[in-house]
Design a protein around this nucleic acid. Structure first.
Length: 583
RNA sequence: GGGGGUGUAGCUCAGUUUGGUUAGAGCAUCGGCUUGUCACGCCGGAGGUCGCGGGUUCGAGUCCCGUCGCUCUCGCCA
């Protein structure tokens, strides 16, 4: 502890200083006025110290008017409290400071909300974020975020990764999310884009001969926000390795996640290595490529059991290549009609046509009882005493199947709320068909499994990529890939989605050019830092662990961003604003 | 861009279903009392453009239309 003009000690280190003079500085958290004597709880970074003002002494006239959250510095004597006044809820609760002199360093206006209040509306909290962050709960979130990032840096450096800063002003790229753009004064009419991720830069660093790169990198995507997706900027642990394999990337991230969760969630006892689930299997078992493995339920693909004796209602779906999935549930027959109606409504609200179910108790009951075969009944019997059926296109099933599995899991108490269940989703399809045209289903720079031969000989829909996600509790924490570092394979891969080599060179010129000069095989991933901290903090929305988040509409309610700029400013940039101001 | 929720005192909310006296409560604030409290306590006062604009009505916090903020969500997020 270095003494300075403001303090000699912190509030939580007074227990062994009885009889000594100290100087403390901090915020007036609460005041308790007993007439001739006032208790002041002084709060600093370490905690709270109770200070006493004896108002009968002349030098404290009017001091009872000192407002809450004012910043003060006090000189005083540390005293043992009377035994009946111990407060063991506070570290320094057995001592107190008798104030001898007090200096108001900055007084506070009347507060917009009380510091102990934890039901303040988010709008007000964002407007007064500096006060909101002063609350204990938010302080601990700031500290958690710092500790997580500090540990990550340590872990990455222990594995020979070096941190490199990449540009914030870069060029717009055609694929992906909407860009945030910044007008260029020196190049009127032209715009920078803020990077959606340092994707191309980190690949270029691999070409530069960097062995292992990482960065706590800001990423900017101009898309609508969600509870787990903030507007504006978010942060990734961006990493890339040369001469690497998918397995090696997994090892690195399993090491990071294991250490981070072991430190901050030791009671969760997470696995040292994570289960791998091929994309197709995840979709059929959980209806999702980000399954929440805490829920002890799964679907079964029973399409084949319906190939003969197909009930009429499933006929059309199956003819068009749809699937029939079965969700067996124990004790399902005990549920009321209302529960089934609720589930029906849930899936329909999320795009399902309907929801079938069968109950097996003394007899076979339910809307599908009459139409399914003995074989199906037996299949259910082995796994429960009832089951839900969904029959639909796979692309549609993924919209509601995860909701159903979660709701049923909740109803039957089959969710281990305190667990952290990780899995790798692997073998993502390279392409998907959208409105009759092939598109990259993920990152266009991923290496197709099977390389050039696969691109030339296989149906695009059957080609898998070295593309993987790391999922925890139904949240996509990481996306990554082994990259395509061979130009001829790149051109071919783009050709399938309708890009000529000229198009590719035009859109991704810098990377294409670099790949002509000795690009090593490389790959990496990018875990979302905010989502990781959110998981560790257990908050309902991601803004709780972001110091200064934007609102859902992308506004900073404290700084009043974004704002209009002056016409002089616009002229300098060669811009005219073309919106109806009256609107 | 679509759908849902929400907006009343500085804060958290009641009142809106069924239009009708001066729009209430708790906390905070202000004044008074108070020497062992610790989110101290007791007494009293002040505090309102019911988000904003328009309409219906003798009369609107309440009904209708429009609009804005916040939020959840679908689309979107290679």
């Amino acid at each position: 502890m270095t003494k300075n003009q403001y303090r000699s000690n912190y509030c939580s280190e007074l227990n062994n200083l009885v009889g000594q003079k100290v100087k403390l500085a901090g915020w007036v958290r609460t005041k308790r006025d007993h007439g001739s004597m006032i208790f002041v709880d002084l709060k600093d970074k370490t905690g709270v110290a109770q200070c006493i003002i004896d108002v009968s002494e002349d030098n404290f006239k009017n001091i009872e008017n000192i407002s809450l959250e004012s910043v003060i510095s006090v000189d005083g004597l540390v005293l043992q409290r009377p035994e009946n006044a111990f407060n063991d809820k506070v570290v320094s609760g057995r001592v107190e400071v008798k104030i001898e002199s007090i200096e108001v360093l900055n007084s506070s206006d009347c507060l917009p909300f009380a510091m102990h209040q934890n039901d303040v509306g988010e709008e007000l909290r964002l407007k007064y974020r500096f006060l909101d962050l002063r609350r204990d709960e938010m302080q601990s979130r700031l500290h958690l975020r710092h500790e997580v990032i500090k540990l990550i840096r340590h872990l990455m450096e222990s594995m020979d990764f070096i941190e490199v800063q990449t540009p914030i002003l870069t060029s717009s790229s055609p694929e992906g999310a909407r860009d945030y753009v910044v007008p260029s004064r020196l190049n009127p009419g032209k715009f920078y884009a803020l990077p959606q991720a340092p994707q191309q830069f980190k690949q270029l660093l691999m070409v530069s001969g960097l062995h292992r790169y990482y960065q706590i990198a800001p990423c900017f995507r101009d898309e609508d926000s969600r509870a787990d997706r903030t507007a504006g900027a978010f942060y990734q642990l961006d990493l890339e390795m040369s001469f690497t394999t998918q397995e090696e990337v997994f090892e690195v991230l399993e090491y990071v996640m294991f250490n981070v969760f072991s430190k901050f969630k030791p009671e969760a006892k997470i696995e040292r290595t994570f289960v791998r689930i091929p994309y197709e299997e995840a979709i059929l078992k959980y209806g999702s490529d980000k399954p929440d493995l805490r829920v002890d339920l799964r679907y079964y693909d029973v399409t084949d059991l319906f190939s003969e004796n197909c009930p009429k209602i499933f006929e059309k779906i199956m003819k068009n290549g749809g699937k029939v999935l079965l969700l067996p549930v124990k004790d399902l027959h005990s549920k009321s009609r209302k529960f089934f109606d609720d589930m029906q409504k849930l899936v329909q609200d999320n795009g399902a046509i309907g929801l079938g179910y069968i109950l097996l108790d003394t007899e076979v009951r339910g809307p599908l009882a009459k139409v399914v075969s003995e074989e199906v009944i037996n299949f259910i019997k082995e796994r429960g005493d009832g089951a839900f059926f969904i029959a639909d296109d796979i692309s549609n099933i993924t919209k509601y199947a995860p909701h159903l599995i979660k709701a049923v899991g909740k109803e039957f108490d089959l969710i281990d709320e305190h667990a952290y269940k990780f899995c790798w989703i692997v073998d993502f399809p390279m392409y998907e068909k959208v409105e009759g045209k092939w598109q990259f289903s993920h990152n266009p720079f991923s290496m197709p499994q099977g390389g050039m031969e696969a691109l030339v000989t296989q149906d695009p829909g059957s080609i898998k990529a070295f593309q993987y996600d790391l999922v925890c509790n139904g949240i996509e924490l990481t996306s990554g890939a082994i990259r395509n570092h061979k130009l001829e394979i790149m051109y071919k891969a783009f050709e399938i989605v309708g890009y000529s080599s000229e198009d590719v060179e035009k859109e991704f010129g810098s990377m294409i050019n670099a790949f002509k000069y000795g690009a090593p095989p490389h790959g990496g991933a990018a875990p979302g830092i905010d989502r990781l901290v959110m998981l560790l903090a257990g908050t309902e929305n991601i803004r709780e662990i972001i110091p200064f988040p934007l609102s859902q509409n992308g506004q900073d309610l404290m700084m009043n961003a974004p704002t209009c700029i002056s016409s002089k400013h616009l002229n300098e940039l060669g811009l005219t604003v073309n919106i109806d101001k009256n609107k």
